Lab assay of single mutants.
Amino acid sequence: MKTQEELTEIVRDHFSDMGEIATLYVQVYESSLESLVGGVIFEDGRHYTFVYENEDLVYE
């Protein structure tokens, strides 16, 4: 089982391919040991929310 830090790094690596990240945040109250819920804001102003669970990243 991966730690929350490892899950965060996986998500950061994925989004870094889309541009320069200004902020990546995790909603700790919605996340667990198996899933990571949060959002990412890019330097150009784009903002996505995401759920990473079971090695699957869903964002909008």
Rank of each mutant, 00 (worst) to 15 (best):
G19T: 02
E53M: 14
K2S: 07
V26Q: 03
L7N: 03
V37R: 13
T8Y: 08
S35M: 08
G19S: 03
K2I: 06
L33M: 14
H14P: 02
G45M: 04
N54M: 09
V58G: 07
E30R: 03
T8L: 13
L24A: 02
S31W: 08
E5K: 08
Y48P: 00
I21Q: 02
T8V: 13
E30D: 14
S32N: 13
H14N: 10
D17Y: 13
H14R: 12
S32H: 11
R12P: 01
I21F: 03
T23I: 07
H47I: 14
F15K: 01
F15W: 03
R46K: 13
R46F: 04
Y29S: 10
T8K: 12
I10C: 05
G39V: 09
T8A: 10
V11I: 15
F15G: 00
I10T: 08
Y29L: 07
E5S: 07
V40L: 05
D56C: 10
T8G: 05
V28W: 06
I10S: 06
E55I: 05
L7C: 03
Y59A: 06
N54F: 07
G39D: 05
I41T: 08
L57M: 08
Y25T: 06
D17C: 12
L36V: 07
I10P: 02
Q4H: 05
E53N: 09
Y59W: 10
E55F: 12
L57A: 03
Y48K: 02
H14G: 05
T8N: 05
D56F: 06
S31Q: 11
E55S: 14
V51L: 11
T49A: 08
F42P: 00
T49M: 07
L36N: 01
E30M: 07
E60G: 11
K2C: 06
R12N: 05
E60K: 15
Y25P: 00
I41Q: 05
D17V: 13
Y25M: 04
E43L: 11
E43N: 15
F15E: 01
L57R: 01
R12Q: 06
H47D: 03
G38E: 00
L7H: 03
V58P: 01
T49C: 06
S16I: 10
E5N: 07
T23M: 08
E34M: 10
S16V: 11
V11H: 01
L33V: 13
D17S: 15
T23W: 06
E6V: 10
T3L: 05
A22Q: 13
E53A: 14
E9D: 11
D44R: 00
D44N: 06
Y48T: 02
T8F: 09
H14Q: 10
E9R: 13
R46Y: 04
I10F: 12
A22T: 13
E53G: 11
Q27F: 09
H14S: 08
E9G: 11
A22H: 12
E20N: 13
G45F: 03
T8R: 11
E34L: 11
Q4P: 11
Q27T: 14
T8S: 11
N54E: 07
T8I: 15
E43A: 15
E6R: 07
R12K: 15
D13M: 13
E53T: 14
E53Q: 08
Y29E: 07
T8W: 08
E5Q: 09
H47R: 12
S16A: 12
G45P: 00
G38C: 01
R12T: 06
L7K: 03
S32K: 11
V26I: 15
K2M: 09
M1G: 12
E6L: 07
M1R: 04
L24P: 00
T23R: 10
D56R: 11
E20C: 07
V26F: 06
E43G: 15
R12M: 12
L33H: 13
A22F: 08
E6C: 06
G19R: 01
Y59D: 02
V51N: 07
L36M: 13
Q27S: 15
F50V: 01
G38D: 00
L24D: 01
M18C: 06
E20R: 13
E6K: 06
L57S: 02
V58N: 10
I21K: 01
M1K: 15
D17R: 15
S31I: 08
E43W: 10
E43T: 11
S35T: 13
Y29D: 07
L33A: 14
L57Y: 04
L33N: 13
T3N: 13
Y29R: 04
F42K: 00
T3H: 05
I21D: 01
G39W: 05
D44K: 01
R12V: 07
L57D: 00
Q4L: 12
F42H: 01
T3D: 08
E9C: 12
M1Q: 13
T23D: 08
M18N: 03
G38M: 01
Y29N: 09
T23Q: 12
G19I: 01
E34C: 06
E43C: 10
Q4C: 06
E43S: 11
D56M: 14
V28F: 07
G39F: 06
K2Y: 06
Y25H: 04
D17P: 10
L36G: 02
T23C: 08
E5V: 08
V51I: 08
V37G: 10
L57K: 02
Q4W: 08
R46G: 05
N54Y: 12
V37F: 10
V28R: 10
Y59E: 03
D17G: 14
E9K: 12
D56L: 14
L24Y: 04
H14V: 12
V40N: 01
Y59S: 05
L24N: 00
I21R: 01
Y29Q: 11
Y48W: 07
D13A: 14
I41S: 05
D17K: 14
L33Y: 07
V26W: 06
V40Y: 01
G39I: 06
R12H: 09
E20V: 15
H14W: 14
Y52N: 01
T49F: 05
Y59C: 05
V58M: 11
L7Y: 04
S31T: 10
E60R: 14
S31H: 15
H14K: 11
G38L: 02
E53H: 09
I41F: 12
Y29K: 08
F15D: 00
I10R: 11
A22E: 10
S32G: 10
F15A: 03
E60W: 10
S31P: 15
T3Q: 05
H47T: 10
I41P: 00
V51K: 15
E53C: 09
L57C: 04
N54G: 11
Y59Q: 04
D13L: 10
V51P: 00
S31A: 12
Y29W: 11
